[in-house]
Design a binder for these strands. Structure first.
Lengths: 246, 246
DNA sequence: AACGAACTTTGACGTGGATCAAACGGGACT
DNA sequence: AGTCCCGTTTGATCCACGTCAAAGTTCGTT
């Protein structure tokens, strides 16, 4: 498993402080992006994009958390991606959205109108390359998740999700390689279930089981403490530390 | 769901007749690709790339079928992609392979050494753009498959797989929108199970059930006739015809 | 403080698919 | 023709997770 590349598309003065702006950014690129950007806010629970809609923008999440989901006619839904600050939304060159994007907390997006962005992409190879790297990262993540969905038990699925959230949280506020950590779950039990291909009851039961077994501790419903990250990786069935240690 | 973009990377004289070479190909691009290409053959069952290996090439499948799989320590394996002729393998800019690639039939690949290919990419925006489109297609496919793995029943999973193979087969040998078709299954029951997150016994049982119910007919073990594609799409739980009709 | 709404936990029970096991092709060798 | 090997089918049983139902928790509102 390659460590995800840290690279994203961002205008010059977007308040994304969560990751360093890509070192290869040229100032003229930033200015050009700056000229076509605008901000949009969404409230928790509000849809950002509906599958099939015409999408006339692309953009990055500045703050908050959004989910990418697919739904069947009968209501069964599967989350196919989790969007955290600095994540990119949109598919240059495609007109329609393929998934539902919903804000799970209040969300601020930094948007670029699609046409000018595509023009900029055509004239700025760096941006196209970074976009390719980001898309390859997403593809890796999606395929890793296919293994989780297809072959892991409920307990392993929960542990895998906690691992992913812990890893992303650690990369937002780096503190070196530590063996214990605590973080907030940004998802309801139902959203976790949609991510994992489980029911919310099973998620709840497995969370309780992991707590009983001392793998995690819960403060309230949402705050999770992991006394031993190595133990959590084992529970997830991962053959590595998932790129968390370094 | 967007119809997948038909676009791929191919040298000038590769015998890929299965899809038209991208119309935007400039002849100088083709010549440049031609200069760095070489062919490799693999026998059925032979590994092409092992996860974690250093990959010093990228390339396209010319003939045959290969699978992309991930494996856990204890042997559980999940297929994360199916490579048919004209599909691209490799991740420009990445050194290590993230998955196992195995030839399921005899396979011929048209390879490009990675470094020269990356140089060419840097100097030829068209190639980078096409690669981005292909990666976006793969991402869409992976995410669609996440819904299958996470939320569909065994019977729906089988029907979904048959739908995909029928669709790809139809695009290789176009014959207009027809309601019945027959094709060869390029996979063993075990490979189907690995794709679907099931056991081979369950795959076999569900195939028998679909046969008993008249959704499919089997000639031998591998040849499948579908008297009514619409019926198959319904069985797959798809809200659309999966892009097959046109 | 009392209420209600949304989320979560827990229990009892049913079932779809996994597991274990055995038999059944069909093609490639003697 | 026989037999070996590999893939496939089918059967019997089990269990992880889904389903249905009820109670508990948290938090905002009156």
């Amino acid at each position: 498993m390659n460590a995800p590349t840290i690279s994203h598309i961002s205008c010059a003065d977007c308040p994304i402080r969560h990751r360093a702006v890509c070192a290869r950014c040229e100032s003229d690129e930033l200015e050009a992006l700056d000229a076509i950007k605008y901000y949009r806010s969404y409230e928790a629970g509000q849809p950002i994009i509906w599958s099939g809609d015409v999408m006339n923008f692309v953009g990055s999440v500045v703050s908050g958390i959004a989910t990418l989901t697919q739904t069947m006619e009968d209501g069964r839904t599967q989350m196919v991606g989790l969007l955290l600050p600095s994540d990119f939304v949109g598919r240059p060159g495609r007109d329609g959205a393929a998934y539902n994007v919903v804000a799970t907390t209040d969300v601020v997006m930094c948007c670029f109108r699609k046409k000018p962005f595509e023009d900029l992409m055509a004239s700025t190879p760096h941006i196209a390359h970074r976009l390719l790297e980001m898309t390859l990262d997403e593809l890796d993540a999606a395929r890793e998740w296919m293994l989780v969905l297809g072959r892991k038990t409920a307990r392993e699925k929960i542990a895998s999700l906690l691992t992913i959230i812990a890893r992303r949280d650690a990369s937002l506020t780096p503190r070196g390689a530590v063996n214990e950590m605590t973080f907030d779950l940004p998802l309801t039990r139902e959203a976790m279930a949609d991510y994992l291909g489980l029911t919310l009851e099973t998620v709840s039961r497995q969370m309780s089981a992991l707590k009983k077994d001392g793998v995690i501790a819960l403060e309230g419903k949402r705050r999770v403490s992991v006394p031993d990250m190595g133990r959590l990786f084992e529970e997830a069935g991962d053959d590595s530390d998932g790129g968390y240690m370094s």
